[in-house]
């Protein structure tokens, strides 16, 4: 049930990850929801200092009804000294509910 899911990539290169969100062990229907992904230096870094991705700006809904989308982070956004790490968080907002964290974790970045 943990929302934390750490990722691994390579520093300084384009990254793509395919996400699948679930709720109560079944795919989370994201139809009508607003999904954002925030990439920042660490968990305690204010979101405003990070990079925010949304649908059409780094996020692509591949199957909203199945909770599936991809995240494409350009190389410039993950250009850290390797090995290093960043922190990401996926927020889902729908209707009257404000954005709620749906998934988050470290993005470990290895040297090329």
């Amino acid at each position: 049930m943990s929302l934390r899911f750490d990722l691994a990539g390579v520093a300084g290169f384009d990254q793509e990850f395919q996400f699948s969100l679930t709720y109560a062990a079944v795919p989370l229907n994201l139809t009508g929801c607003t999904v954002t992904l925030i990439l920042k230096a660490s968990a305690v870094t204010p979101d405003t200092l990070g990079v925010t991705y949304g649908t059409g700006t780094g996020l692509t809904m591949t199957s909203a009804a199945d909770g599936q989308f991809t995240w494409d982070a350009p190389a410039a956004d993950v250009a850290v000294d390797a090995p290093g790490s960043l922190w990401y968080r996926v927020d889902v907002a729908s209707g009257d509910s404000g954005p709620q964290p749906a998934m988050y974790g470290a993005l470990a970045l290895a040297a090329a």
Binding site: G9, Q15, A25, V92, S94, A112
Partner: peptide, 29 residues
Amino acid sequence: ATTAGSVMLTASQLGGSAVSTNTYGGSAQ
């Protein structure tokens, strides 16, 4: 128009996974 319905997520019910589909632009060592 779109629906005004809402989803209130309970954190304990959330889960998910992500897999890398990286090719690193073909320039990875």
